[in-house]
Computed example of a mutant assay.
Amino acid sequence: MAAVRCAARRLGGSLLQRTQAAVAEEGRLLAPSRLMRSRQLSTKVSGEHARNIQKKEDDCWAGFNETLKRLDELQKKKKPSVFQQRMISIDRALKSLVYGSFKVTVVYVAAATAFSGSGLEA
Rank of each mutant, 00 (worst) to 15 (best):
A31H: 12
P32T: 06
P32L: 03
P32N: 04
S33Y: 15
R34P: 07
R34Q: 15
R34C: 14
R34G: 06
L35T: 15
R37V: 14
S38K: 14
S38W: 10
R39E: 10
R39A: 06
R39C: 04
Q40N: 03
L41H: 02
S42H: 15
S42Q: 12
S42T: 14
S42F: 14
S42M: 07
S42R: 15
T43K: 15
V45W: 05
S46H: 09
G47V: 03
G47F: 01
E48N: 07
E48D: 07
H49I: 11
H49A: 10
H49N: 12
H49Q: 12
H49T: 14
A50Y: 04
R51S: 03
R51T: 01
I53T: 12
I53G: 03
Q54C: 06
K55Q: 07
K56C: 04
K56N: 14
K56G: 06
E57D: 14
D59H: 11
D59G: 13
D59Y: 08
D59E: 14
D59P: 02
C60A: 13
C60I: 10
C60H: 10
A62S: 09
A62L: 10
G63M: 09
G63H: 01
G63Q: 05
N65Q: 15
N65E: 13
T67F: 13
T67R: 10
L68D: 03
L68H: 02
K69L: 03
R70H: 10
R70W: 08
L71R: 09
L71V: 13
D72I: 05
K76H: 06
K77I: 04
K78R: 07
K78W: 04
K78L: 08
K79W: 08
K79T: 07
P80Y: 00
S81M: 01
S81E: 05
S81G: 00
S81W: 03
S81C: 11
V82I: 12
V82E: 06
F83C: 08
F83H: 11
F83T: 13
Q84F: 08
Q85V: 00
Q85P: 01
M87T: 10
I88M: 06
I88F: 04
I88H: 05
S89W: 00
I90G: 00
I90Q: 10
D91V: 02
D91Q: 06
R92P: 00
A93G: 04
A93V: 01
K95L: 01
K95S: 08
S96W: 01
L97D: 14
L97T: 02
L97G: 04
L97S: 15
V98F: 13
V98D: 04
Y99H: 09
Y99S: 11
G100R: 01
S101W: 05
S101M: 13
F102E: 11
K103Y: 13
K103C: 13
V104W: 00
V104I: 11
T105P: 02
V107S: 06
Y108V: 04
Y108H: 12
V109H: 05
V109A: 09
A110S: 01
A110H: 06
A111Y: 09
A111Q: 08
A112Q: 02
